[in-house]
Write a protein that binds this DNA or RNA. Structure first.
Lengths: 329, 329
DNA sequence: CTGAAAGCGCTTACAG
DNA sequence: CTGAAAGCGCTTACAG
């Protein structure tokens, strides 16, 4: 015996497919008799009927699926909570939210979303133009560059605010000459340059000299060299805002080997609030993001794009970032 | 103008839908004239025809989609490479691989995969029984507990081997009294207990005393207390195998505050080879997993389950784990 | 209050 | 070598 269809339910209950559909979709305005209604529900349950999403999608022309396309971002850990929340809030609205991971535009992505026929595609990076075109042609809405600064309204998250908040905190602690640890990695381009820009602006706004920027890689040598540049040159800095916690922790380790005391000789602030941040000694001051709020905000944007319903209500950016002060500042 | 269908292509090319389908699916055994073939391809291309996955799925009874269900695992970062590889190798076989993230079994998952109608469901955790039942009823194959030790053949990854490898390395460095840092967190239950078991067995096989196990949490206090237990009690240990790098790094920090020199007073080995592991001072010895190999291995398992084709060729577990020796052992 | 019928886009036996 | 027709499972205007 194959899968149970709505026709099976109809036959078994002695009604028409139409009635089954009406009952199961709650189209009660059609005025189904209470008894018929009960009978259908009972029968469907007894037969273990599960409606075919494909059948429905075929008829409706589009699946109830939100497809998120994730490029090779180095933020996996932080996104986990985000994914859970986005999935849950979209599920409430009757949509499934699934993720497609890809590195290089290898096989055209079209090959993939063809199989899904999503109601919308949410691209966390940017899609190859050919894919964007195909989507448009198929009439599937595309939400692109979710993480980009210019789209901060969608998520309520503006990367520039992150850098700004770091600098403001350091300034409040009395620091005037501030270093910025940038990461020289194209994968981070949606994040690092905007944060640096925010830090630069904050310095300007506060009347501080421009931050002393050093490009690092993830290596001890690179971190050591950076520490030397910040502390030994002319105009040494007294505090460093790091692009993220990982970089900050590498810098922290380098300070130890160079006998530079944190935070007395050099203050340090990261971003992300990684689990390891609170375990370091001294524990790392950092900036945490409330990804739950971001996900909820994105949900409203997505739904409004699908339904052309009410426009999304933008989240309050201020509420999303939190300074987590520990022992390095 | 709405989406371009195969009927549009047929009309425009002056052939039948049948011919269009044959050409586009490479059913050349039907002997399509070369000229007709060329014409169809050219027309499809000109109109920007993209076949509807839903139409095909409807006809075939199942979508060309592999749905991976991911519970709230704390291994996100490590899975990233895995996802990319799995996605790429399944794409080669003509399947799209998408991920569904969920925390608690909130909404029945059925609600979701209904929308997708996948060819197979791959559950990284275990599914609620009701969902498993519904899947079976719908005739959708389910691959459950991919990460569980008893299914090591699917992925080629046996968590027990991880603990064993740690102990073997420490023993080779001359250590006889070994501690094990376990993590007291249900989210880690697919990983931590098996690794500990492997460590225990390795100790037995090597004629060493059983490992001195301490349950930790992710906190400095917890790590400090553990270090004290290992180093101050009767029968102090000379080396610790930590469940993962994060725990190992917390222990490393605690050693520093307690003036315990690593590796001379206490050797330390982690698991995961996190980016931060090589940035710590001293850099952490750890065990890396080749997730690419695991993903390839899983692909063959998945495809064999879909096609009932040739059984999967299991990967060689030995090839997947690599000892990364650095400065803590 | 309920049902017969059409149609979403595709593939494939079958007929020519 | 090519096409007309059926049917996958659903929803919904329309008819009664």
């Amino acid at each position: 015996m194959g899968r149970v269809t709505s026709r099976d339910v109809a036959r078994e209950a002695g009604v028409s497919q139409t009635t089954v559909s009406f009952v199961l979709n709650g189209k009660d305005e059609h005025g189904i008799a209470a008894e018929t209604r009960r009978l259908v529900l009972e029968t469907a349950d007894r037969l273990g009927y599960v409606p075919s999403g494909i059948g429905r999608a075929m008829r409706k022309g589009r699946g109830q699926v939100v497809l998120c396309v994730i490029p090779d971002l180095p933020v996996a850990e932080a996104m986990e909570q985000f994914k859970l929340t986005l999935g849950a809030s979209l599920a409430e609205a009757g949509y499934a939210c699934v993720y497609l991971h890809h590195a290089k535009p290898t096989v055209p992505l079209a090959q993939t979303w063809q199989h899904i026929q999503p109601a919308i595609v949410v691209a966390f990076g940017s899609l190859p133009p050919s894919d964007a075109r195909t989507l448009k042609q198929a009439g599937i809405p595309l939400l692109e560059g979710v993480l980009a600064p210019e789209n901060a309204r969608m998520t309520g998250l503006n990367q520039e605010d992150v850098g700004r908040l770091q600098v403001e905190h350091l300034a409040a602690r009395g620091h005037r000459r501030i270093g910025f640890a940038a990461l020289d990695d194209p994968r981070e381009s949606p994040f690092c340059p905007p944060r640096l820009k925010g830090a630069r602006r904050a310095c300007r706004d506060l009347g501080l000299p421009a931050p002393k920027v050093v490009d690092l890689r993830y290596s001890q040598e690179s971190a050591s060299a950076a520490v030397t540049k910040w502390t030994r040159g002319t105009n040494p800095v007294t505090a460093v805002a790091a692009f993220n916690d990982l970089l900050a922790l590498a810098i922290l380790a380098s300070c130890r080997t160079q006998d530079i005391t944190v935070p007395d000789d050099l203050a340090l602030i990261g971003v992300d609030d990684l689990p390891i941040a609170s375990l370091a000694v001294p524990a790392l001051t950092t900036i945490a993001m409330d990804l739950t709020a971001i996900a909820v905000s994105l949900t409203t944007t997505v739904l409004s794009l699908i339904d052309k319903g009410a426009p999304a209500t933008p989240a309050d950016p201020a509420a999303i970032l939190t300074l987590v002060q520990r022992d390095t500042t």
